[in-house]
Structure formats: C-alpha cells, structure tokens
C-alpha cells in the first residue's frame, strides 16, 4: 500500500461545483452534475469510474479542451471557464502535457519532430527546440530512437515518445488518458514505471483510467459515478473500490 507521504505543492487545479450538459437531440445529458476537486502540484492522482460516469468529460475539462456549463475552474489561479479558444490553446500548450491511449503521434514525422511539435506552437527557436526535445527523449530512454518514425517503433516506445512530447514544455500537469489501454500488460507496467519515475522527479500526474491495476500506482484516487464524485481519498483502497465498482 502506497500512501501520500510527502508534502504537496501549491494548488494547480481548483474546481468548484462544475457541471457539463450536452444536448443530444431532444434530450439533455448531464455529464457532470456538480463536481468539486482540488489538485496540488506534485500530486499523483487517478480518476476512475465506469463508462458513462463523466470521467472523460472531467478529463476534457481538466485538459482545457472544453469549458464547463457552470461552476468555477481555476488553473494556476486563472479562470479557465471564461477563456476563449486561443487562450485555452495557450494553456494546453504551456501548462498541460497530454498522453493519449492511442498515442496520437504524427505518423510521418520522426520521434524528434513529434516531440518538438508543442515547442513550435510555443514559438521556441529551432536550435533550442531540438536541444529540449533531445533531452526529454533521453529522459524517457529513447536517445537512440530519435530519428525513427512511429511505424518503426514498438507500442511501448511510441507511448514513450508521447510521454516525452507531454514533458517537453515543462507543463504544470501531465494528463494521461488510459495510457496503457493499447499496450500489453508487460509494456503497460514499463510505462507505469516511467510515470512513477516522473512523479519521483516532482511532476504532477493525473491518470484517467478504468483499470484498477493501473490506478494503484497513484497516490490519490477519485471515483466518479453518474457525474458526481463518489469517493476521493489518499492512496488506493482496493476493498472499497471493489465495492464501489460492483455496486449495481
């Protein structure tokens, strides 16, 4: 059992009572129905929940890909709920590192070019870009795969490239959506070891998953059900989680 033993940093994400409604034809779907959540710097948190629980919607909110219908969302003290598209793009670029289930690498670009992409959007000059991208690729153990294209890499290596891409801008949080979903369990464990390493080096990680085996790596677990937070506790309590998941 791992518990949060170290002191947490300043507040990064401060969500208060946010809701999100989707209009689907005649019906309005209440994907989030009043969620409040605070995440501090250097936390390692897993967001869990069955499909339809609002997990993905919450992740989109946290990742500034979408804005809430109502409620307050402050990211590093800035009000995200009222930002326009370009301001949201800037937050995503500088403050959030995304890791996707399907890797989402550009197929015709090398690892190096893939990792450089967020830096281009940040307006960093080519030399610095290459230096920074090379550095993070070494960090994730792909120093010898920099000029390979995604189809020349294994699944685990591709996800490492994606992790490097997420890290390269030194974001406030790393937001990983089912990062092991497309990997076999052994490779999945390797990726989780990489996340553990990143956490140990002071990164803030938010893991969105429905797999308990993956969620156990986090230091704090948030359970969602029907658009509400059901439980939010330090560490991972398998018994309680089991109950939560198996309840009809």
């Amino acid at each position: 059992m791992v518990t949060s033993t170290r002191p947490v940093g300043p507040l990064v994400i401060d969500i208060e009572n946010i809701t999100k409604d989707y209009v689907m034809g005649e019906e309005t779907v209440h994907a989030l129905r009043g969620v409040s959540l605070q995440i501090h710097k250097t936390e390692y948190i897993a967001i869990m929940g069955p499909s339809g629980s609002g997990k993905s919607t919450l992740m989109n909110m946290l990742g500034c890909l979408d804005t809430p219908t109502s409620g307050r969302y402050e990211f590093n003290g800035k009000n995200v709920a009222e930002m326009n598209d370009d301001e949201l793009a800037a937050i995503r670029n500088r403050e959030i590192g995304f890791v996707f289930q399907t890797f989402n690498l550009l197929p015709r670009s090398t690892s190096l070019r893939n990792v450089e992409l967020p830096l281009i959007y940040a307006g960093i000059d080519p030399d610095t870009r290459e230096e920074m991208a090379t550095h993070v690729l070494h960090e994730v153990g792909l120093g010898d795969r920099m000029n390979h294209k995604p189809n020349e890499l294994s699944g685990g290596q591709r996800q490492r490239v994606a992790v490097a891409r997420a890290l390269v801008n030194k974001p406030s949080i790393i937001l990983a959506d089912e990062p092991t979903g497309n990997l076999d369990s052994k490779t999945g464990e390797e990726i989780m070891a990489l996340f553990e390493d990143l956490y140990q080096r002071g990164n803030t990680i938010i893991l969105v998953t429905h797999e308990r085996d993956i969620a156990v790596h986090a230091r704090r677990t948030v359970h969602l059900r029907d658009g509400l937070i059901e439980t939010d506790h330090a560490g991972f309590i398998p018994e309680l989680d089991l109950v939560a998941l198996e309840r009809p």
Binding site: D86, A89, A90, R92, N93, F98, N104, P118, A122
Partner: peptide, 11 residues
C-alpha cells in the same frame, strides 16, 4: 487536427 489542438495549436 485534434492532437495538434491539444498540443496548443490555435485556430
């Protein structure tokens, strides 16, 4: 396009 937007590409 979605990926690029997530990585910070503006409109």
């Amino acid at each position: 396009i979605g990926t690029r937007k997530a990585l910070g590409a503006r409109r």
